[in-house]
Design a protein around this nucleic acid. Sequence first.
DNA 1: GATGAATGAGGCTTCATTCAT
DNA 2: AATGAATGAAGCCTCATTCAT
Lengths: 202, 202, 202, 202
Amino acid sequence: MSRPDVSAQRTAEILAAATETFARLGLGTARMEDVAAAAGVSKGTLYLYFKSKDALVAALLQALFAPLTEALTLLDGAGTAEDRLTRYISATLALLEGLQSRISLVFDAFALAPRNEAVRQLMADHLHAYHAALVRTLEHGVASGEFRPVDTAQVAALLMALFDGLLQMAAVDPEAAALRTRGRGALRFVLDAIRRPPGRSA
Amino acid sequence: MSRPDVSAQRTAEILAAATETFARLGLGTARMEDVAAAAGVSKGTLYLYFKSKDALVAALLQALFAPLTEALTLLDGAGTAEDRLTRYISATLALLEGLQSRISLVFDAFALAPRNEAVRQLMADHLHAYHAALVRTLEHGVASGEFRPVDTAQVAALLMALFDGLLQMAAVDPEAAALRTRGRGALRFVLDAIRRPPGRSA
Amino acid sequence: MSRPDVSAQRTAEILAAATETFARLGLGTARMEDVAAAAGVSKGTLYLYFKSKDALVAALLQALFAPLTEALTLLDGAGTAEDRLTRYISATLALLEGLQSRISLVFDAFALAPRNEAVRQLMADHLHAYHAALVRTLEHGVASGEFRPVDTAQVAALLMALFDGLLQMAAVDPEAAALRTRGRGALRFVLDAIRRPPGRSA
Amino acid sequence: MSRPDVSAQRTAEILAAATETFARLGLGTARMEDVAAAAGVSKGTLYLYFKSKDALVAALLQALFAPLTEALTLLDGAGTAEDRLTRYISATLALLEGLQSRISLVFDAFALAPRNEAVRQLMADHLHAYHAALVRTLEHGVASGEFRPVDTAQVAALLMALFDGLLQMAAVDPEAAALRTRGRGALRFVLDAIRRPPGRSA
DNA sequence: GATGAATGAGGCTTCATTCAT
DNA sequence: AATGAATGAAGCCTCATTCAT
């Protein structure tokens, strides 16, 4: 009945400010001072909640990826495989659009991954969970007769690559973005390619 | 017939050393001293050839992307559209595998792009040239009857995203990579999807 | 009633240390490290109080000239023109003797002036105020009949040049200095030359 | 009958270029590279003619002061003391106006003097020779009855200070310069003050 | 003599982190 | 818990000087 949430809330505030600041200035460029200013606290306070800049970055990236990982549950929901994929992709595209300004953090994370084990692990875990969920869904579709008997691992990887790539392109060339449109088009393309032709069974 | 190549060669040596060093340590982490040591010259010499660390990074990224841009000419060569795409993708996958250890530089570049106009421009230019060449090739294929009348801009974007995404995933999870295998599989998948069914006209 | 003086005091300490250090080693030769050591703080602390070495130098020169400019008020005090001039020169000579060891800073400032607009402005402002005050005093003396109807602007410039020159010579050749003696002698010489001969009006 | 003058000429060229360059950029700011470029030779060549930057500066200042010292012979020429003083001051003012753009070097030299024994010696020597010549001339004037029996050492110092001061003021505030006009006015002022009143002997 | 590429010591400045209050 | 002044290691860059050609 004490208030552990007081500091929990402060932690969240700092994390939010750090996310905004690091996204705007870059992981390497943003200074702890900048984060402190954005959070409305002093530099010293940052160190009461996070051991170091690295720890703050790690926590921040974890928080950034959490909703994306959580959205994977949509792939194990009810409905046809196609429904699930569509639902998941819609939700994810919405999440990504919500990330908007924070998108550059994702690239900072990718750049960091090969040289920071914690970050690499974090991202690898996400990608594995992502891949596994896609494979399960695709196999469900194949088993149910929705999809042709494709190489599910291969198609899963292809779908992941597709969306990562779209995200990346959107970041470099935001005008040509239309991330949501492109994303849906890409899914449709893949579904068209793996869907079992309708009148085929006749 | 004098020796303008003296500097040219030294420039190339420094660029090579810088590439290796920045790839290994990261654009932000590597120090000019590290580059100098790798190049076997003194710190001061670096500044004889490049005005600043930023200039060195810019030159290095330009050099990194040049062969990738150059490979685009394969898309405008002879043969069917499918041949050209296959040839180009093979060449590019080979290039990327050759990049191997330097691949993290690409991600550093992506992370830098939103905050460094020179880098953003460099990458945007490459992506535009890439997209235009793909569109040309796909339209050729559609005109010749190889491909179904697909939305070429959309498919081109999809192909680009696909390969960028594969590259990205390969970096985070190098073991599951098999970049070349995955890449060819992805191309085959797309080609299968857009190829005009053989006996269809009958 | 908080402690805005904490920084104010530290600022003053640093300024004092910088003055001593720059005077001893020269504006160009002294390192920020030297100043820090003299102030008993770390290098980083210097930058908490002054944006750069240049800013520190500018602040220091401003502080150096302030008392000299302030002494000009003596020229507008009570008494005959001759009293005022004598009083002012005495006070200024005392100030300059107090500057003693810091005198080389004045020459550094003169050397800097043509190439540093802030410094040039600072000194030009002082010289203009100086000249104007002298002219006012001389004109008062002419109006009151103390002085012959001389060209006051010219005599003012001459007085200024005289004292600047004495200062300069004292710096190069400190032994022959006797700045105070020479200074008083110079003033007497000028006063003798412009004073209206006593019984002349008879 | 060889050509020792070849290198003598080259030495002079370098000295001229150095003078212009150091005057323009400042003794501390100008780089050996700048001097080399101005002289139209390579950096290495500079070191064939001068052992170091310091040596170059010393030679340059010596050359700068030489004509001023030489002009002192005019004080020992023919004519009345007043003639000689007038002639000398005219010649010197012309020299100084010729120095124009190089005038800031004089202040660099004054700033350097307290911390560079060679420079201090050079300037002290000049000032002593200057003072001695003035004293001689004034004493000649007193002896001949041109001047009142003034304290010649004191008046000599006063004259020197006067002209040094005028020079200094001209540098800080070039617009109010009119160095030549002010200089002549100053001399006239002093002569008027020490000249024996014409009909006085009667 | 002349060159200019190469050197490396050294200066200015930044910033993650600490700690006394 | 919170602060923010203080620290000092470390990075980028400059430039006087050297030396092989």
